[in-house]
């Protein structure tokens, strides 16, 4: 009797877990199907390559111009910029917390950095829009305080907690025997950190960076507020200091204004589909950074 109750409980727990797993997959598939359903009609207006490589996004002109290249490049600029800022900063911060800071300071710093993750993105947007943007524009003599690199900077701040926290764990998990081995060969503390500890924590640091930037790619509100929202194709390095518009910002800004079932409407879903595919690929890479 007892045994069969235990058996039933096992069965119940197992099926609940299995159901949760299956549901998660079903939801993802449903989202994909829903996106596909609302995106597909746009292909009666334009081919996939027209959409992806078209150089002009003027959805309200007649006929609608639905070239996504400015948006895709806008996202790319903002994301690459965020990478370039966030990875060195995050790694430096992680090294400082795990290797340089005294124990007391570490115990305060790490939770503090992790708390940054709890700040809503609209607050970052506000900060960028009202304070950092105008200040940087003043400093660099830019015509406008909303530009791609500002979006990168804000996204980098948002990615930092993840990058710092996970990299710090990875660095701390490097066995002490490796450090001793290096020190005993006459290496200084700093040489040991740079040449042995950080390389040994490499895979954790890569995973941390990918996870941190996962948030950046999908981030909407901050970017919408600080990048100026001009759907123009960014040119060269100077493009970082000019307004751009990202894919996410486009969907957020235009979905409420477009008429139902117009080509514009369907094109916005196509953007969503492109984002979905990018994010999916990105996550697959984050799971196994070596592969």
């Amino acid at each position: 009797m007892k045994r069969s109750i235990a058996g039933a409980r096992e069965w119940l727990i197992e099926s609940t877990i299995r159901l949760a797993g299956v549901l998660a997959i079903i939801f993802v598939l449903l989202i994909f199907a829903f996106l596909l359903h609302d995106a597909l009609p746009v292909f009666s207006e334009a081919s996939l390559s027209d959409l992806l490589t078209g150089r002009s996004w003027r959805p309200t002109s007649e006929p609608a111009q639905l070239g996504m290249l400015p948006l895709i490049l806008g996202s790319l600029y903002v994301t690459v910029g965020a990478l370039v800022i966030a990875i060195p900063l995050g790694l430096g911060c992680a090294v400082f917390i795990s290797e340089v800071a005294p124990v007391r300071m570490r115990e305060i710093l790490k939770p503090l950095v992790e708390m940054l993750a709890a700040i809503p993105s609209v607050v970052y947007g506000f900060l960028g829009l009202l304070m950092i943007g105008p200040w940087l524009a003043d400093l660099m003599d830019l015509p406008i305080g909303q530009f791609a690199a500002l979006g990168s900077l804000m996204l980098a701040f948002m990615a930092l907690p993840t990058i710092v926290s996970i990299s710090e764990d990875a660095i701390r998990n490097v066995p002490v025997t490796l450090r001793s081995g290096s020190l005993a060969l006459g290496a200084t503390d700093w040489q040991t950190i740079v040449r042995v500890v950080v390389p040994a924590a490499r895979s954790g640091i890569i995973a941390a960076s990918l996870l941190g930037l996962g948030r950046a790619i999908g981030e909407t509100m901050t970017v919408l507020m600080v990048t100026g929202n001009a759907a123009v194709i960014p040119q060269g390095l100077a493009g970082f200091l000019k307004p751009v518009r990202t894919m996410t910002a486009t969907i957020a800004a235009e979905m409420g204004e477009t008429a139902y079932q117009t080509p514009h409407y369907h094109a916005l879903f196509t953007i969503g589909l492109v984002l979905f595919v990018i994010t999916y690929k990105h996550n697959a890479h984050s799971e196994c950074p070596k592969g």
Partner: peptide, 28 residues
Amino acid sequence: VQLRKRVGMVFQRPNPFPMSIYDNVAYG
């Protein structure tokens, strides 16, 4: 640094660095 160059140490458990054989030896 000079002292530890002159007095080398081998540990209880092998502790090669996670890099190539060549880079391990070339480290010092």
